[in-house]
Design a protein around this nucleic acid. Structure first.
Lengths: 189, 189, 189, 189
DNA sequence: AATGAATGAGAGTTCATTCAT
DNA sequence: AATGAATGAACTCTCATTCAT
């Protein structure tokens, strides 16, 4: 599963570090140590700490994108999407935390902001497409075909993924309720 | 509007600093300077940086609590509550960011975690009370009287308040849509 | 026994502090606290830390001088003197430590050096007087009537009083042996 | 004479600094500067100030041990030992001062205490061995074969080495007198 | 490609001292 | 005579970064 590659190792280590201690507690030395190399080696691959962080964010977003890529039967995609997040929250709680850190950082770091907005735009477009198609198929009430619903879903998912309110299993209450409200709380579960 | 008090000044300054640069960028020296005092003075009031942060968080949560305290006509309380957040997001975007930082930090700092959970529990209790009474009054569909709805509302509000997705005015799309879904998108707007 | 007096209280507190933590660990705040007053009050009585230290040293030397003042029967004075130190070591081990600190500090602080030398000179004069008179009375071998013996006695006493080698009761071994060597290990014990 | 090695340089510099200003006046920056490196470099070798101090103490005790290691003809060892200290006092007065600081610090710092006691025990054992053998050879009065004499010698030596009473050449008065009393004031001088 | 050693620029914290009251 | 509040200067320690090897 792992195929080495110093760069990847370093990004992985940094990812875990951020998930555990936040940007606040991110130390190049710790990352290097966790990856089993010298700090100087880290700087060979990532000239600055910022560049390392950028690497982590790209990686995190890739992971997010990949996992959430709608797939499966055409009409169930929306349902699947939400379910995928519920699943992700359990399997990889770290990802949620890192996404949260990313979101917060986007507020003040223009470079991160750009990454964030790009990802958000992509997501939103996909989301809207799904909603529209679902509505057209009669699987969704007409009035839900909107940017508002996309925003609501995305907000709920993000907060579910990153907030400590959701630790301890009761995390997906909100998502489930949203599914019910949207009328897509599929039989398949 | 301002009534002095070094302690308050320092907390205010730290609050703004966190909102602007995150915990990551919080520097005692900058806080002190912003409050117009020497660093040593800061440490006279707050022995450690951690204690200053705690001060800020308590302050932030107080502010949040106060603002969101449901008031006004009895049946409209829920509506008012949501509206208050929408309003808060515009007036004081900083508060949202700080709450976001708080939430993230709660994931790794037990002391913060405690503060967070306490606030969350209080809020949830209030929320559920509101939902129940609204349902009893016939203003809300029966099936919405639940923990899930409370979680959904709170998640949406939090994410609306702290995420950069919502900057630039389109922030309250999600909340509005939620109101519509709940059937409380009151004529009063 | 205690008749108040802020100055004395402060000196006492500082003395104890030095005995416990050395000059290295002496903090004006701690001294003030131990004396039950504010730091500013301490500075009212002692404008600088140095002046407080000076006060402590004078106090310590007074205590040393007083205790060791040869008294009692004329010929036994020497014996009594040594015995007094042995006694002092048990009763007030703190005094020894402080005298040790004083001696060390004298190496680099001219003001302390002056105090130290003055005390040393006085002591040495008294010592020599004692030795001479004891020798004249036939209580001491002639060849011991010298500066060397005085130096030996004083060195032994000082080291016995301040060195951790002597903690735990086995401290006065050296003094006893010295008494035997000098032939004054009196029947009175 | 000097063979480099940053660690050694730093220890040397710290040693001199302590001799000159005491623990009280020991500043990492000064030590680093004296060794010609940045403070951060000092912390590269010694993570904390305490660890640097420990390094210095070990070094000092090594130096002490080495110098005082009894060598030369078997019966003269005792004499040589005392003479070596007299010599050391003139050649390296700093060592005495540092040993004094060490002794004082041992009173309150358990780690230092351990070092001190260990060295003391070693020394005492060697001393007693010497005394016994000298007595057996008939070079020493029988009644001197004791822990008391060992303690007396050691106390005298320590105080001679570290006390300001001994500055200015008249330092070895006490040792000489002790030699005379013990009857070992050898013709060799 | 990798590292041990080194560093400049801070960071948080401490402390003797001052001053208005 | 006493204090709470304030400060400048300094201290130890940290960290991203560089560089010779």
């Amino acid at each position: 599963m792992k195929q080495g590659g110093r760069r990847e190792d370093l990004v992985d280590a940094a990812f875990k570090e951020i998930a555990q201690r936040g940007f606040e507690g991110l130390r190049t030395r710790d990352v290097a140590a966790a990856a089993g190399v010298n700090v100087a080696t880290l700087h060979y691959y990532f000239p600055t700490k910022e560049s390392l962080i950028r690497g982590v964010l790209e990686h995190a977003m890739d992971r997010f994108r990949t996992t959430l890529e709608p797939h499966g039967s055409p009409a169930d995609q929306l349902r699947n999407h939400l379910r995928a997040v519920r699943h992700l929250m359990t399997t990889e709680p770290e990802l949620g935390v890192v996404m949260g850190e990313l979101a917060l950082r986007a507020n003040r770091d223009p470079a991160v902001r750009e990454l964030h907005d790009e990802m958000y735009a992509t997501w939103q477009k996909a989301m809207r497409g799904l909603l529209r198609r679902a509505a057209r198929d009669g699987k969704l009430r007409r009035e839900l075909d909107s940017d508002g619903t996309a925003a609501l879903i995305m907000g709920t998912l993000m907060s579910a993924a990153s907030s400590p309110m959701n630790a301890g299993g009761r995390g997906d209450l909100a998502i489930r309720q949203l599914e019910r409200l949207l009328g897509i709380s599929g039989s398949i579960n």
